[in-house]
Nucleic acid binder design. Structure first.
Lengths: 361, 361
DNA sequence: CTGAAAGCGCTTACAG
DNA sequence: CTGAAAGCGCTTACAG
């Protein structure tokens, strides 16, 4: 009985062996040539060309799963974040763009894990670390380390960690300095009563912004004590906090300037001011933080503190990749934060105080 | 010489075999139990518990790559998009959120491929389809099908395809109707001279919006012919188009209302109007499209057409998954679009025209 | 210098 | 009902 030649089923994607068969060589040879391994030097140029040609004809694509299994590398990094409406959207997008860019540059895939809540989802985090990713970037994590024992075997990097995560290198910006500089700027314009609409309690970032604000006030003898009003991160929280304050205190005790924990809160704050007929910056100056997209879209555009979010995302990828490829470097507590500089951005929402203007006139 | 017992190296993640060894059963038994396969019914409850316990103790996680190789399924879907500044950011985020949500619901990973340019990156698209994903969602693709022969062996779904892609099911919203309804609304308020700031040439979406606009004008006898001014998708394009028009035509020939191809363009348009002292909506009404985040952040908030972007993203995942699991269904050209309804959203940027108000007064 | 073999960690079909 | 074996598609170390 004659052997019936096996015909490659068209449904199946071509494999290394298929290419090898077509070129009359072993699968190994194909692998070596296609990967440009040093071992490919021992294959004659003609054979190499024949192999490439066969691969092209068959539209061969190396199978990612098989490769990952053999290499113990997925060429994929994970990004865990809470992606919700409002500010975090802009924040996420900017950092994420940087992550995607750097990933592409290093031929890595980026896979996104959307969490609802840091405190409640630690188990999910563990599930992600099953070999589908080589390392994980935590975007603005806010759980307590004692809640989540981070999975072993997986390198981590955090961006804007809002709680201390021992052993995880954190990428942050000089938020305290940003808050300090912005408050100094407001003081320099002549403002004295400066309110701070603050972020959620117990988070590192908002605390740093408060500290910068208070340090700046303390540096100015003529400034009255600080006025920190808790708000949150989102526009509605900024609006509600300001509304509430106005209702209790009336316009008479109005601050001359309001420095907000971020742009979203600044926008909500402006909304609340507008509701009672107060204009920005004529009646009150309002400053934000982040320089998110929102800062340029709102009217007036926001004076704010710019963080290089995109660059921070790129750096996160690069640091993570070195941790993946050189696990030795992860040496325990020597982890320092990487701190990016911030920069004041001047736009329409801040001007000299009305009183100062009058005095001058 | 006594056999030295092998000690599991801590550096390596535990495998099925490790768990089996610890529980005194075969790797296969562990697999069956942990996967809840029907074959596990033949394993005694005690053994099962022992296996689970061992897995827990070792913190066993099935290796995703090995699983993918054996199953020929990565449990991962790809999302290809051009993610740039401005409008597409908001657009992307909304759809992407829906994609992430549906993915998580179906235990799928979502991996993002960020393209610079649809027309120039077709080769990259092919590279993605190497088994690392089971299917691909194209977000607002805008290449020509004759440029990219979409990779075989990979199921596709598109969202807001801006060019016809034969054989790819497209998820879209009833954009023409949205444009029609919005224009009708403006007419109903008494506006007659209504301008349309249009999107880029040659794309399906912008063309549909123009068609809806023109159809509405045609339905109203008293309306003058349409006034379509090309702009683009981004705020600066809206601003520049409007600036240019104002410079050429002056305020005298100003339209009473401007219907913009999207919210971003509307925001740019409002900016250009403000530059020459024209207020919205007192002097001109301005309407957008999309109901992006930007629409609620800008002042005045935008009257716009809402598309259920999030739901569209979720649907994309679901359709893609059926295509992945039931490849037969992909039967050629029977692919119909899935069209989501749109909805007018009324906010502050549109009012009755000043003239009408005067006439009434 | 070359190719056959073993192995990555899982699943599934198949002998006992 | 059970477990040993083969196989998914690749890579790497190792005999010839």
């Amino acid at each position: 009985m004659p052997k019936i030649p096996k015909i490659a089923k068209p449904a199946r994607a071509p494999t290394l062996a298929d290419v090898g068969r077509a070129a009359g060589v072993s699968a190994m040879a194909v692998s070596a040539v296609l990967n440009g391994a040093r071992t490919s030097s021992r294959i004659s140029p003609e054979t190499r060309e024949r192999i490439r040609e066969a691969a092209r004809k068959l539209a061969y694509r190396p199978n990612a799963a098989a490769r990952a299994l053999a290499n113990r590398r997925m060429q994929t990094i994970g990004v865990a974040a809470v992606i919700e409406g409002g500010e975090l959207n802009h924040y996420f997008l900017e950092v994420f763009n940087g992550i995607l860019e750097a990933s592409a540059r290093h031929d890595q895939n980026a896979i996104v894990f959307s969490l609802r809540d840091w405190a409640r989802d630690p188990e999910r985090l563990h599930r992600f670390c099953d070999g589908r990713i080589d390392g994980l970037i935590l975007l603005a994590p806010a759980f307590r380390e004692d809640h989540v024992a981070l999975p072993a075997h997986t390198p981590f990097v955090s961006v804007h960690a809002n709680v201390p995560l021992p052993g995880v290198l954190n990428i942050e910006s000089d938020e305290e300095r940003g808050a300090y500089e912005m408050t100094r700027r407001l003081l320099g314009l002549g403002h004295r009563r400066i309110m701070h609409l603050a972020g959620p309690d117990g988070l590192l970032g908002p605390a740093r912004r408060i500290r910068g604000y208070e340090r700046a006030l303390a540096s100015q003898r003529s400034a009255p004590p600080g006025l920190v009003v808790p708000a949150g991160f989102h526009p509605v929280e900024g609006r509600d906090a300001m509304r509430h304050w106005l209702r209790r205190n009336g316009k008479s005790r109005l601050p001359e300037a309001i420095f907000c924990v971020n742009d979203s809160v600044a926008i909500g704050c402006i909304e609340a001011l507008a509701e009672v007929g107060l204009r920005v910056p004529e009646d009150v100056s309002v400053a934000g933080f982040d320089d998110s997209l929102a800062a340029r879209i709102c009217v007036p555009q926001l004076t704010t503190v710019r963080q290089p979010l995109r660059a921070m995302g790129e750096r996160a990828v690069e640091i993570l990749l070195t941790r993946i490829t050189q696990p030795g470097t992860t040496a325990g507590s020597t982890d320092k934060s990487v701190v990016f500089p911030v920069e004041l951005v001047t736009r329409g929402s801040v001007s000299a105080p009305r009183a100062a203007t009058l005095e001058l006139g």
